[in-house]
Structure formats: structure tokens, C-alpha cells
Simulated scan of single mutants.
Amino acid sequence: MKTRCRSFPRTGRRCPPSSPPRLNGTPGRRWWEHGWVSSYPLYRPRRLRRTPGLRRAFAETSLDPSRLVAPLFVKEGLEDAVPIQSMPGYCQHSLESLVKEGRELAERGVAGVLVFGVPVHKDATGTDAHSDFGISQLALRSLKDELGDDMVVIADLCLCEYTDHGHCGVIEDGGVANDPTLEIYGRIASAQADAGADVVAPSGMMDGQVGAVRRALDDTGHSDTVILSYAAKYASSLYGPFRQAAEGAPQFGDRRAYQQQPSNIDEALREAALDVAEGADALMVKPATGYLDV
């Protein structure tokens, strides 16, 4: 059966992309298939492009500090910031230098910070990740005490920095055990919210992680805490510098058994739909630079 293609000038495609799946399995419809767009000459898109002022006023996307989130790495036991060789301009912070950096970013209008903790103690189940005195929780409290509501403080929620094997969950029979890991994620989320995190960001790509985190937050009185889900976190070599910064590289194997496969577009859409259904308030694609068009 032949498919008739038509041109879509604003996307540059000859055929519309595949429709996103709905949770019931039936395909969704793209906005242009609903007939909502008036035709020429009633609708003239160039009207909104005529002057620099009009283009700025009606820009759908803008790039300014208020749209940015800065990743910050804080390492237990440091007395001062230590430069990260693989990430020029970035440091592993002490608690004191972390707060100073957070204040400077807030004064520059940056919307938020995403905090990654690097502990001294690591074990098989990452117990410091949900300790009240773990480095992430200490950092979150320090930032909120300094910044209050001037900046959104986001906590990365994972185990790779805290486990001695460097994987994002509990190891059983040589692999990451999904469901036992979810229980730990819930404990981490509650600890991070207790410490003042505005947003928790589960990044381990475990099946059901958003639902587990949402239930744990609601059960511990944190129903207002936002979940920013790593809905499509692709397996990628681009994480190399980050793994040095967070000291969370896997000690055996890799993470392809749970991170997203770059070649699968429909699977990424299903992952995103599942996260929304489980209670995610916002979604993330990572690494964004090379994968937003996947």
C-alpha cells in the first residue's frame, strides 16, 4: 500500500512523523491533522516575522539564564572547590563553595541547580544516598537555607555515585534488579524532599521508578514535591566527563540493559507516556544535544 506524502514547510519534512502512541495503544493525532490552521491568505505566518520586535515577542523558545539549570557537583570531605579536568570551568564543590556558587548563579538569573552528591563511603546498596547526613542531603539543606525560593533546587535521584559497583541499582545475579531498586529510590526521594529539594529527578531508568517515587513522596507528606523524570536517558559515550565529575562510572559492564537505546524512537515515546501516567510533572531527554531529534 502506498502512502501519499505532503509537504510540511515548518518542519522541512516530506511526510509527517509517526504519531505518538497513546496509553491505550491507539495512535495520537498531530496538531496539523485537526484542521486548526487557517489557510492563506487569511493566515500569513510572515506577519509575526516582519520586525525584530515581533520576532522576539512571539518567539516560542528563548535562550536566557531564566531557562537554564546548572549542574553542581558536591563532594564529601572537601575543604575547597577542586577543578574537574574533563569539564573545564566546573568543579567538585565543598559545601561552602557550593553555596557560594549557588548564590552567584541566582544573582545572574539562572533558574535552578541540579545537585549531584559524591560521597566518601560507598557500598553495595548506596545507603548514603538516603541518609539524613548524606552529602546530597547536606548540600540541599545548605542551598535552601541560603537561597530559599530564589532558585529551584533539583536533586538528582540515583545510586551510581553511592554504590561501590557504580551501577544505578541493586545487583542481583550479575545484573541490576529493577523492583528492589525501586524501594530504595522511594527512600532517597523522601530524604531529598525532607532536606528541602523543590524537585527530585529520578535518573536510573528503572521501570516504574516515577510511580515508586511519587508514592513515597505522597506517603511521607511531600505531595507538592515535583518529579522531573529522566524519561529518555540514552546510553551514550557523552557521559564520560560527567562520570569523572560524579565518580560514578560502572565498575563492570555498562548500562545498556537499562538506559534507552538510541535507535528506538517509539520506545522513547512510550517511556515518556508511562512516566506521565505514573505522575511525572516534567520530562527530560538526555543527552539533549544529540538526541532531541531522535
Rank of each mutant, 00 (worst) to 15 (best):
R4F: 14
R13Y: 13
S18N: 10
P21T: 11
L23W: 08
G25F: 12
S38F: 11
P41D: 09
P52R: 14
G53H: 12
L54E: 14
A57Q: 14
F73K: 01
K75D: 00
K75S: 10
E76D: 14
D80P: 00
A81P: 01
V82S: 07
Q92Y: 00
Q92W: 00
H93Q: 13
E104C: 10
E107S: 14
V115D: 06
F116Y: 15
V118D: 05
P119V: 05
H121G: 00
K122E: 05
G126T: 02
I135P: 06
Q137W: 01
D149V: 07
A155E: 02
L159Y: 03
D164W: 05
H165T: 08
C168E: 13
V170A: 07
T181I: 07
E183T: 15
Y185K: 11
A189I: 10
A193D: 02
D194A: 08
A201D: 01
A212N: 05
R214H: 05
R214M: 09
R215Y: 07
H222P: 12
D224K: 11
L228A: 10
A232V: 15
Y234V: 13
Q244G: 00
Q244M: 04
A245M: 07
A246F: 12
A249Q: 10
Q260D: 04
S263L: 07
S263W: 09
N264M: 11
R270I: 14
E271G: 00
D275T: 01
G279P: 02
A280V: 09
K286H: 01
